[in-house]
């Protein structure tokens, strides 16, 4: 086995009723790589993320992280191995402050427990100040203004800032593998460019982190990913550099059917 492979799947599949949403998909990603995952609507991209984070259990197949099978492990254990994600439809807690949302990303590194919450306030103050410094430096990567908004409920922030907070929350976990599900959805082209620069910055600052990014926007995929995998009807139909994949006949057909203009 290739040692540089951080994460890979083996014939990963799941069926919902009669529908094979993911059909024997083999993916792999090396340390420090950015893998673009593309495919028309409903081709199974989000479902793959849900499978490898333990939200769904595969019907057949297996997936490995740092050489260890994570099949059947509950979501919280998979997270603790070092896989973090964002969601296509934001899952931030809108009533909670920006800081609280980022803090949950640090949850499993805290040794703090219920008894400590009541009796060890000094310890809490110390931990909070450290955690907050870290949260501020994460938020600061994106936008200095986000730091000033740290005490505000996330629900009061504009869409682009929410996306950023979600990425910060995932980064707060100090993951080795980061899964981004359409991080630029609902943004203007300018905001999108800005966000992509941010993501690059994040990746440079935490060297070694691998990223799988799902995106519909091909300019984004072209500019950011080292390698691209294309899906259609749950199957992997192409893999390679952006040029190779976008020249692939099957990919062209899959997209031309619905959204050829995107390519």
């Amino acid at each position: 086995m290739d040692n540089s492979r951080v994460f890979w799947t083996e014939d990963l599949s799941i069926a919902f009723g009669g529908l094979l949403a993911v059909d024997r998909v083999n993916l792999d990603i090396s340390r420090g790589e950015i893998l673009g995952l593309i495919g028309p609507n409903g081709s199974g991209k989000t479902t793959i993320f849900n499978l490898v984070t333990g939200i769904y259990t595969p019907s057949t197949g297996d997936f490995f992280f740092e050489g260890e099978s994570l099949l059947g492990k509950p979501a919280y254990q998979i997270a603790r191995k070092g896989i973090a994600r964002t969601f296509q439809i934001s899952r931030l807690c809108l009533d909670l402050s920006v800081l609280d949302n980022v803090f949950i990303g640090m949850h499993y590194r805290q040794k703090y427990w219920l008894v400590d919450a009541v009796f060890r306030r000094r310890l809490l103050a110390r931990e909070v100040s450290q955690a907050r410094d870290r949260a501020f430096s994460l938020l600061g990567v994106f936008n200095e203004e986000l730091v000033d908004l740290a005490g505000k409920p996330v629900g009061t922030l504009p869409q682009i800032d929410r996306r950023r907070v979600e990425i910060c929350r995932a980064m707060a976990m100090e993951p080795k593998l980061l899964l981004l599900d359409e991080p630029s959805a609902g943004m203007t082209p300018e905001e999108m460019t800005e966000l992509m620069q941010d993501i690059k910055k994040v990746q440079e600052e935490s060297e070694g982190i691998s990223i799988i990014i799902v995106e519909h926007d091909m300019t984004v995929i072209r500019s950011i990913s080292d390698r691209v995998v294309a899906l259609n009807y749950g199957r992997k139909i192409a893999e390679g550099t952006f040029e190779e994949v976008s020249d692939n006949a099957e990919v062209r057909e899959a997209y031309l059917g619905k959204r050829g203009h995107r390519l």
């Binding site: 997270a79 973090a84 807690c93 609280d100 949950i104 499993y108 809490l124 929350r169 976990m173």
Partner: peptide, 21 residues
């Protein structure tokens, strides 16, 4: 405290909570 943050997250979104360990 941290516990409060954890509980709020569980209340608002169990799936998100699990995803973060």
């Amino acid at each position: 405290s941290w516990v409060g943050v954890t509980l709020s997250t569980i209340r608002d979104d169990e799936i998100a909570a699990q995803t973060f360990g």
